[in-house]
Nucleic acid binder design. Sequence first.
DNA 1: ACAGATACCAAGCAAGTGCTTGGTAGGTTA
DNA 2: TAACCTACCAAGCACTTGCTTGGTATCTGT
Lengths: 194, 194
Amino acid sequence: MTEATQTRRAELLDIAAKLFAERGFKNTTVRDIADAAGILSGSLYHHFDSKEAMVDELLDSFQNALWEEYDAIEASDRTPKEKLEAVVHASFDAIDQHHSEVAIFQTDAAYLSGFDRFAYLQERNVRFRDLWTGLLRDGVTAGELRADLDVELVYRFLRDTVWVAVRWYRPGGDLTPTQVADQYLHILLEGISQ
Amino acid sequence: MTEATQTRRAELLDIAAKLFAERGFKNTTVRDIADAAGILSGSLYHHFDSKEAMVDELLDSFQNALWEEYDAIEASDRTPKEKLEAVVHASFDAIDQHHSEVAIFQTDAAYLSGFDRFAYLQERNVRFRDLWTGLLRDGVTAGELRADLDVELVYRFLRDTVWVAVRWYRPGGDLTPTQVADQYLHILLEGISQ
DNA sequence: ACAGATACCAAGCAAGTGCTTGGTAGGTTA
DNA sequence: TAACCTACCAAGCACTTGCTTGGTATCTGT
């Protein structure tokens, strides 16, 4: 595979990612992607097996990159609360650096995970749940978090509140992912009451 | 319009609402709706002008009901913090009682608001933003909320974190909307730190 | 008994969907 | 220079989409 091929493929995949993120997977046609790339829809099939294969490649590589970071944090030598903070920071970094992929995951994972090909998405969800609820429970045990927390309920809030930020966060805007993560953690840990 | 007509229409609209909520507006076909109702797709057009008219009716009536409550809270005689709590409670009640409509709004509002017919959705969003940011600013002024809050950032967190609960909350499950709202407010106001 | 309304069916159309096929121009390698 | 490869085009196929048309069975009020 030559370098030019790699480049063109990556270019097309990037165009597709942005369209999928904007309009959703099902609402984006192969003609939309081809138009944005300045070619005909049939020509896409020289580079990719199918429309599904495109989104699969996007989600799979993003998930692998994300979980490398999560695994490193989980295995590191920190307190539960510090790990929680690190995971939040890593997640906002992902929203910043893999914005389209996160948006696609948020919008279309439920729909896609119904297909065999995307079964790994559900497995990832389970791992994510185990990671968060484990950290929360450890934090309570270590006395870093309040003992009266409903861990399952808090987990759902955390999971959704972190990832839903992809809907309004714009990479390259006023706020860095670090700033957003810090503000978020401040609210989450200390509350907004005076 | 006889009572039977009203009933059948409402029945069909309810079936459509559940399908739209589950799979999204664009991913639900008129044949899906008709199948679920046990009729042919063409027969739907005896009751409704179009697929768009169905979702329009659902979203419009839901939004009107919700804003009646919001307006009453805003006009009531309470402190900003109490109003904030009341609005959160009203929102979780809406998730409980108008589950499908909230889910449709969450999933498809961005797509639908691109059409002239659904321009009112954007106007509602502006009003919602004004309501929340106003309450937050009043709360800071009144000394009920921390003075160092980035109101715009906190607003985005609140808006999304409340409504995203529709993804996991199930009406008739273990938790009442009041319980969820109380837990949520506890986390939001006091934080999870020990 | 009959006129109208209601709720539906049977058939199908035009537009749009993902994808396939057979081909070509231009570059690279042997 | 011949063989091959990359990136694309032009045309179209099989299918799905929202919606339309003309008709029928059943009920209700007069």
